[in-house]
Amino acid sequence: MAPGGERPLPERLLAVATRLFAENGYEGTSVQEIVESAGVTKGAMYHYFAAKDDLLYEIYHRLLALQTERLRLFAAGAGPAEERLRAAAIDVIETSLAHLDEVTVFFRSMHLLPVEKQKAVRAERRRYHETFRTLVEEGQREGTFRAGVPADLAVNFFFGAVHQISTWWHPDGPLDAGSVGDYYVGLFLDGLRTDPDGSQG
């Protein structure tokens, strides 16, 4: 924290930009509105972020970096693959819902990033998905998950569902984040498990 407990300027700009992008849309928010809400000048903002799209990229990059670091810990942990995959899957849902504005803003606006930044984001997401996929493959080798289900398809199925949560879930709704995580992950793992007799289903 900055002196007096105030957020460092880059953090304050990102927080303000996230809120305004979520409320008004990325295209509906001007740099002037961001700096006025943050109580700084454009020059101060441009010291940290060269353009508005740098804010959009950084909003998602930071969330993905957080989730990637946590996923690596789950993947490298001890215990059966199913337990680690469950923990990782619940974590990605709970961290996404804890940062709902960031997720909402990004999936509404990713296509507005410059091509090079879109490529960078896709590369980061691909690395994340590959790590997640290794847990599915490990469970298949252990015989816990059906070997006939392509691991890539399972991962894309799960994340496709996760990315849709921001279109319908609200913190004040009937389901809290923990319940959503339990239901989604239960459905995901039920679809991967072998039958109780060890058959592939």
Rank of each mutant, 00 (worst) to 15 (best):
Y183I: 15
V31M: 04
H170Q: 13
P114E: 07
P150A: 05
L13R: 02
A98K: 07
V115P: 07
V103G: 01
T134Y: 01
R193S: 04
P8R: 08
V92E: 04
G186W: 03
E130Q: 14
F74T: 07
R122P: 04
E6P: 06
E6F: 09
R127F: 04
G5H: 05
I59L: 14
L55D: 00
H111T: 14
R193P: 04
E11V: 13
V162G: 00
L66V: 13
F188N: 02
D53I: 09
P174G: 14
G77E: 10
F157P: 00
G191T: 07
L64F: 06
L85K: 00
A2C: 12
Y57L: 15
S199D: 08
R146F: 04
E102L: 06
G178N: 14
P8L: 13
F157G: 00
E23L: 10
Y57Q: 11
H170L: 13
S96I: 13
R84A: 02
Y184P: 11
F188C: 07
L71F: 04
V105N: 02
E69D: 15
P174T: 10
A177P: 04
E11W: 03
V31C: 03
Y183V: 15
G191E: 04
R70K: 09
I34C: 00
A151C: 10
F21L: 05
S179L: 14
A22R: 00
E130P: 08
R122D: 14
T167M: 11
L73S: 13
G191K: 02
E116Y: 08
D190G: 15
S30V: 11
T41C: 09
F49A: 03
L71D: 00
Y57D: 11
L14K: 00
A65I: 11
E137N: 08
G198P: 05
A38P: 01
W169T: 10
L192C: 03
M110Q: 12
T18Q: 05
E82I: 11
A50Q: 12
R133A: 08
Y26D: 06
R84W: 02
S96T: 13
Q140Y: 01
S109H: 03
Y57N: 11
Y128T: 07
E138I: 06
R7P: 10
E33T: 09
S166H: 14
R12T: 10
S179R: 15
V121W: 01
V180G: 00
V149N: 02
A51L: 10
E142Q: 05
P171L: 08
L14I: 08
Y26C: 06
F106T: 05
R86E: 15
P196F: 04
A38N: 06
H47D: 13
D197Q: 11
W168I: 12
A65R: 13
F132S: 00
G181S: 13
Y57S: 10
Q200A: 13
R127E: 15
G198L: 08
V136P: 00
V185P: 01
R127C: 09
G191M: 02
G191I: 02
S37Q: 11
R62W: 06
